[in-house]
Simulated assay, not measured.
Amino acid sequence: MQTISNRSSGAIGEIFGREKALIGMIHCPPFPGSPRYRGATMDSLYDACLRDAEALVAGGMHGLVVENHGDIPFSKPEDIGPETPAFLSVVTDRVKRATGVPVGINVLANAPLPAIATAVAGGADFVRVNQWANAYVANEGFMEGRAGEALRYRSLLRAEKVRIFADAHVKHGSHAIVADRSVTELTRDLAFFDADCVIATGQRTGHAASSDEIDEIAAATHLPVLVGSGVTEDNIVAILSRTNGVIVASSLKVGGVWWNPVEPERVKRFVERAIAGL
């Protein structure tokens, strides 16, 4: 494989202190300003996030991602108001103080600048960006990679310690606009544009990435690779044998659906299965 980036391959070890990381997702409830918000107090919203965070960490997860998943339908990056990173920053700070584990930020949809601002304000360690390079057609419309703009903003904030976890062949959209380029080439573009980790996903939230696509992505990059959707206690061992970790959400929730709270017994079983396979 031709080397196209001198970016370090050690982000997982440097952030989590281990070779493979189990990262739990906190799907925040709808925040004020979003269509599904129905007047809940801010304390009740923050407490719901903290309960999920504490259940995930108590069950053995190594890190967390805070995400505004309750804000469906998501806005395009230029339409996201200042209230979203403000609320997420408070959640992140409280989660970080309560758990002490590494935390990442994902601002939907595809908003790395608000995510970086949130990470700096809340003390997070990394951001997840669904489309870092190139472009695709998402549920929200046409989405461009914003790596150049985001890295300049990160530099402006003197926040180089905030790492970039970027999706390859991101879910919830069509890649027809780059269909003349392989998943291998799209993955290599992430390293070329200074991402720190690559995330493989399925077609939508809760959908598993195929083993063939995981292997293709892993073969295309020197960066750590994680799987970011569809991870369950049934496939975690196989996935960890191919990757440097996972970001998991739906399968750890009551009933296995993303909008429910985290179920501690599911977390315990998942971590036990993962550890047994390491």
Rank of each mutant, 00 (worst) to 15 (best):
I4D: 08
S9G: 11
F16D: 08
G17R: 11
K20A: 15
I23M: 08
G24E: 05
G24Q: 08
I26V: 07
I26M: 02
H27W: 02
H27I: 01
C28K: 03
P29M: 06
G33W: 05
S34Q: 05
R38T: 10
A40D: 10
T41K: 04
M42R: 13
M42D: 13
D43Y: 14
D47I: 07
A48N: 06
L50F: 13
D52M: 04
E54G: 05
V57M: 12
A58F: 13
G59H: 05
M61Y: 12
V65Q: 01
E67Q: 13
N68D: 06
D71S: 06
I72P: 01
F74P: 01
F74Q: 00
F74N: 00
D79I: 11
P82Q: 12
L88P: 05
L88A: 05
K96D: 09
G104W: 10
A115H: 07
I116L: 15
I116A: 03
A117K: 04
T118Q: 11
T118S: 03
A119R: 02
V120H: 02
V120F: 07
A121K: 15
A121S: 14
G122M: 11
D125M: 09
F126N: 03
V127L: 10
N134R: 14
A135R: 14
A138V: 07
G145H: 05
G148H: 09
E149T: 11
A150C: 11
A150F: 07
R152P: 04
L156P: 06
K161I: 03
V162H: 03
V162N: 04
F165A: 04
V170C: 12
K171A: 12
G173A: 10
S174T: 14
H175S: 08
V178C: 06
V178D: 10
A179G: 14
R181M: 10
R181K: 13
R181D: 06
V183G: 11
R188S: 10
D189Y: 10
A191P: 08
F192V: 15
V198Q: 01
G202K: 03
G202N: 05
R204C: 09
D215A: 15
D215V: 12
E216A: 15
A220K: 00
L223H: 01
V227D: 02
G230V: 09
G230Q: 03
G230R: 02
V231T: 04
D234N: 13
N235W: 11
I236Q: 04
S241Q: 12
G245P: 03
V246H: 00
V246N: 04
I247G: 02
S251M: 01
L252E: 01
K253M: 05
G256A: 02
W259Y: 00
N260K: 01
E265Y: 08
K268G: 04
K268Q: 13
R269C: 06
E272L: 10
R273H: 12
I275W: 15
I275V: 15
A276Q: 13
G277S: 12
